[in-house]
Design a protein around this nucleic acid. Structure first.
Length: 291
DNA sequence: AAGTCTGTTAGGAT
DNA sequence: TATCCTAACAGACT
């Protein structure tokens, strides 16, 4: 599933594939992916030049000249792919952007949970969802104090708050699961009960997990973990309930939080806080993984 | 081989 | 207002 690191990878691919180029032709299927726009709106992108592709949280914003923007979200199964001229057909291709050299960038999305909107750039910037998006978890990660201020206002569980795009933009179920493991915080803790020390650990874990996942992808192709069991799961605890904890070897458990599966280590991520007064988690230093 | 699980945002219900 | 719940969708696995 595409979260901040995978979307950042998509951004760098798109920038490489289309940056500075003029679109020769754009054509879209009848698909629910195109929201608030028609197939004709997409087709009218032809002869526009892609000047820049930026990322905000999990959203991609293409800058097109003159004065147009394309806002894309990959949903759960969306991805952009480059097909050279004469390449075989792309399964689940929904929208195609053809370059002057005949290569085609496909937007493929089997489940069609993705979103593509086209509008003047200023309109996209001033309206939902960009308007109320929180600071980017990678490019504008708030310091521990500011992060604490944002999180302490909520009575929800910490994992839900981390995934709230208006609090912090870019984290989804996978990253939130990994971050809380690295920070040694139980996913069901109430956000408002976190100590400043724990917030500090969460902040460091955000940077660490994003950097780690970001470093896993290079080249022109990406494969999401859930796409196939043939792809090895590269994460520390996500999707690994019952496996031994990479830090203490206690079997990992899972529970549902905010309707989503969360894996955690019952020993490394003790359930303190909540209704009871906070107490500091022992800060025993452990090697490599913890930190 | 029908049923379950996957996780995103939007939008309605509470 | 803040939070909670489910639809949309399609494939892989049990």
């Amino acid at each position: 599933v595409p979260e901040l690191p995978e979307v950042e990878f998509a951004r760098s691919c798109l920038s490489r594939w289309l940056g500075g180029r003029t679109l020769r032709r754009v054509d879209a299927d009848r698909t629910r992916v195109i929201r608030g726009a028609s197939q004709q709106t997409l087709a009218a992108l032809a002869r526009h030049r892609v000047t820049r592709v930026e990322r905000r949280g999990k959203w991609l914003l293409w800058h097109l000249a003159p004065d147009l923007g394309l806002l894309a979200h990959l949903g759960m199964t969306g991805k952009f792919e480059l097909a050279r001229r004469g390449a075989p057909p792309v399964r689940w291709s929904r929208v195609r952007f053809e370059r002057p050299d005949g290569a085609v960038v496909h937007y493929r999305d089997p489940r069609q949970f993705g979103h593509i909107r086209v509008a003047p750039l200023s309109v996209l910037l001033d309206s939902e969802p960009l308007k109320s998006l929180g600071p980017d978890a990678k490019d504008h990660l708030p310091n521990a104090q500011a992060l604490g201020a944002r999180m302490s206002k909520s009575r929800r569980q910490v994992k839900e708050v981390l995934m709230d795009q208006t609090v912090l933009a870019g984290l989804g179920n996978i990253q939130a699961t990994e971050i809380l493991f690295l920070a040694r915080v139980h996913p069901a803790r109430r956000a408002a009960s976190l100590t400043q020390v724990e917030i500090g650990r969460i902040r460091a874990a955000i940077a660490k997990s994003l950097a780690r996942t970001l470093a896993m992808n290079s080249g022109d192709k990406i494969t999401y973990v859930e796409e196939s069991k043939r792809v090895e799961n590269p994460f520390l605890v996500y999707g690994k309930a019952k496996s031994p904890c990479p830090r203490c070897h206690t079997p990992l458990r899972k529970m549902t939080i905010g309707g989503r599966t969360s894996a955690f280590c019952p020993k490394c991520q003790p359930r303190v806080g909540g209704a009871r007064p906070n107490r500091r988690v022992s800060t025993k230093s452990s090697k490599s993984i913890a930190r």
